[in-house]
Design a protein around this nucleic acid. Sequence first.
DNA 1: TAGTGGTCTAGACCACAGA
DNA 2: CTGTGGTCTAGACCACTAG
Lengths: 223, 223
Amino acid sequence: MTRFAAIRDEMLRRINDGDWPVGHELPTEPQLAQEFGVARGTIRRAMDALSDQGLILRRKRAGTRVAARQGHASRMTIPIVRLGIEARGDRYSYRLLARDMRPASADFGGPAGVLHIDCLHLANAQPFQIEQRRISLDALPESIDVDFTRESPNEWLVRHIPATDVETTLRADGAQDEVAQHLQLPEGAPVFVLERRTFLNGKALTMVRMSHPAALYSITTHG
Amino acid sequence: MTRFAAIRDEMLRRINDGDWPVGHELPTEPQLAQEFGVARGTIRRAMDALSDQGLILRRKRAGTRVAARQGHASRMTIPIVRLGIEARGDRYSYRLLARDMRPASADFGGPAGVLHIDCLHLANAQPFQIEQRRISLDALPESIDVDFTRESPNEWLVRHIPATDVETTLRADGAQDEVAQHLQLPEGAPVFVLERRTFLNGKALTMVRMSHPAALYSITTHG
DNA sequence: TAGTGGTCTAGACCACAGA
DNA sequence: CTGTGGTCTAGACCACTAG
């Protein structure tokens, strides 16, 4: 156990035990450094961890206070679909369903239009995910020349495109139309849906909806 | 833009542009410190950010290498249900459905048994979440005396119990039995399910399944 | 404007795992 | 063994903002 970790845990204990209740102002960094007998940098490292977890609020001049817990933050990792399947020892396969160009919609794309790609990712030949991808041809004109019959948009984008800002939404839904058909589910069957939008310097690059049969997909986070 | 942030972004650029392809070994920290004209600590801060994102792998003696991207990591916040509802301007209400003690099951609880609590969280009097809570009475004997008709287990636990380790699973499912009944959904209708287990020093404290009508719940992450 | 957190430095020693 | 990352120090100056 390193020193900053021990100090972080002791601060955590004081918060949890009520020694430092919600709204309480913590001692200043130099004061804590003296109390724990360490350098100020070590105190900061401990406090940074608590601040990242949202347990304390730090403001210049106003000091540091215990935050009211408003929820639970944790780190989530969404694997690339092929790797997730292979990691479970299943056989991955892929099928392109549709590929065409369309004009921009109200909320996505520009004058050059949008590349629509629908494809299916399978685990042991069983439908696992339908990927409905939209790529802005203004932002990524080179995507028009990619052969997506062999490589999924997912993989191509991850390998070629830097993602500065990503927004991911997770939700449940009922399977309908093409989704139900290609996932081989009855209409209305529960599916787990991941929607992601990727930006580079504020400009939308791609948009994707990934739908999975509910029974085959879950996400687990630790911390 | 601080110096470490500028260095972090430059490293990010080198990775994304292929100057540092996957598997490439980065210069050592002192070398980078000299290249960028900063102290080693500033280099470390930039590298820590990349390491947290999973973009580089650092091993003692072996140096630092560009990691193969295996997925996308982001930070997720799951709000306390009452606060999430109130944040949207809706009126929160709560109803206790059932409360009883049962013996431990194979995977949860000890000799003292398990407190089962089922309750409903509503937004504008519409069912929003059914919370099926299990509390180990070996770990939290004081929970037996709590009046859960006024305060939900969710809130009581957040306010009173320190959580060192938390495991959260997100999935979709079809509503069945009590879940369908209390959420006022037809059997098999899609629900968004959060399952969470909380540990203190490796000992399981509580376990909860929170089910929401798919149309009312989603989680969005940034970064 | 004074005091707090935010950043950075130049050094030191340690722990770990690869050669 | 030896070199790398991991931790820590004692100091400095800066930026923001509450009072």
